[in-house]
C-alpha cells in the first residue's frame, strides 16, 4: 500500500503567552504529540494549561512561537488547522436558552456538517448519555454533568482527528465519569489523538499513554507514562483481594509501606531494589488471594510532585 508522510497532530515550537497585564502564563514551550497518542497535560492550578490549550485551538493569540496542527500553522492557515480538531473547553460555553438539538446543529454547521448528519452522528451518543429524550429542551434544563456530556458529544459529532479536552470530568459523579472514560477509550482505539488536562490522576493513569507536566508555564516533563513511572525511585501499586483484608493482616509488609485504603484496596510501595513479583509471591504465601494488581495513581502524583518541587 502506498504510504504518505503526514505531520504531527500537534507541534508546538518555542511558544510563549503574555497576557495584556504583562503576565507570562506560558514560557517558551516546545513539544510534539504523535498520532494516536493519548496525552495528559498535568500541572497545578494556574500552571498555564488552559492558556496553552487556548493557543493551540486558536482562542488565544500566540505571543511568540509557532503551533502546527497536522502541519497547518494555526495562525497562518487557521481554517485548515481548525478543521482537524475538536475542543471541549474547561468552562461550559452554551447559550443556555438554546435547545440541545440546536446546540449540536449550530456547532456542526460551523464545521460544514448538515443538520441531518449531525443528528445521525449524535443520536447514539445522546442515547448513551440518556439525553435523547431531552433534545427539544433548552440546555438550561440540564444538570451540570449532563451539560459536560453534551459538550463532549458536540466534539464527537465533528469526527475529529484530534480531540482536546480541558478538565472534561471535573465535578462529575463516578457514573458520568465512567461513561466519558468509556467513550474516550473507544475513540482512542479507533485512532483518535487525544490531549486531556485533569486534576484526577487516577483518570490520567487509566486513560493516557503520555504525560506532559507544565509548571509555572514551562514544560518540566514530556515522556510516555510508562517510561516516566519506570524512572521513579519508588513505585506504588494498588492491590485488591478476593476477600476482605484488614490493616493488621498486612503487618508483615511494612517494608512495602503497606496500607489499606478506603476503597478496600491495599497500596504497596516498591523501591528500586525491590520487586513486584516478589511482593505478589509473599502475599500468596501469606494466604491472601489477589484479585487485581495495578500501578497506583500515586505514581503520577509522585511524578507531579517531583516535577513541580
Amino acid at each position: 500500500m502506498e504510504q504518505t508522510v503526514i505531520d504531527a497532530p500537534i507541534s508546538v515550537s518555542k511558544v510563549s503567552k503574555t497576557y495584556k497585564d504583562g503576565f507570562r502564563a506560558v514560557k517558551n514551550v516546545s513539544f510534539d504529540i504523535r498520532k494516536g497518542d493519548f496525552t495528559v497535560l498535568l500541572g497545578l492550578n494556574g500552571a498555564g494549561k488552559t492558556s496553552l490549550i487556548s493557543m493551540i485551538t486558536g482562542l488565544n493569540k500566540i505571543s511568540s512561537g509557532v503551533i502546527q496542527i497536522f502541519g497547518d500553522d494555526i495562525t497562518r492557515s487557521p481554517y485548515r488547522a481548525k478543521s482537524h480538531m475538536a475542543i471541549m473547553p474547561q468552562e461550559i460555553n452554551f447559550n443556555l436558552f438554546s435547545k440541545i438539538s440546536d446546540v449540536l446543529i449550530f456547532h456542526g454547521g460551523y464545521y460544514g456538517i448538515s443538520p441531518e448528519k449531525v443528528m445521525q452522528r449524535a443520536r447514539p451518543l445522546l442515547k448513551k448519555a440518556r439525553l435523547l429524550k431531552k433534545i427539544d429542551q433548552p440546555v438550561s434544563s440540564l444538570s451540570g454533568g449532563m451539560k459536560r456530556m453534551l459538550m463532549l458529544i458536540r466534539c464527537l459529532i465533528q469526527n475529529p482527528k484530534l480531540l482536546i479536552l480541558d478538565e472534561p470530568t471535573a465535578n462529575l459523579d463516578i457514573e458520568i465519569r465512567k461513561t466519558i472514560w468509556e467513550i474516550l477509550r473507544a475513540e482512542h482505539k479507533k485512532g483518535m489523538t487525544t490531549v486531556l488536562t485533569t486534576h484526577n490522576l487516577e483518570e490520567a493513569q487509566l486513560l493516557c499513554t503520555n504525560v506532559l507536566i507544565l509548571h509555572h508555564g514551562e514544560i518540566v516533563l514530556d515522556r510516555s507514562i510508562e517510561d516516566a513511572i519506570q524512572s521513579l525511585e519508588e513505585k506504588f501499586y494498588s492491590v485488591s483481594f478476593e476477600s476482605k483484608i484488614t490493616q493488621k493482616q498486612l503487618h508483615g509488609f511494612s517494608s512495602y509501606h503497606a496500607e489499606m485504603r478506603e476503597d478496600g484496596k491495599a497500596s504497596f510501595c516498591i523501591r528500586s531494589d525491590q520487586d513486584i513479583g516478589h511482593l505478589i509471591y509473599k502475599l500468596h504465601l501469606a494466604g491472601h488471594k489477589i484479585a487485581h494488581v495495578a500501578p497506583s495513581s500515586h505514581q503520577l502524583e509522585q511524578l507531579l510532585h517531583q516535577a513541580t518541587l
Binding site: Q3, V5, I6, D7, A8, D32, I33, D37, N210
Partner: peptide, 8 residues
C-alpha cells in the same frame, strides 16, 4: 516525541 510519521 517525533514530528513525522507515515500513515495512509
Amino acid at each position: 516525541m517525533s514530528t513525522k510519521e507515515t500513515t495512509t
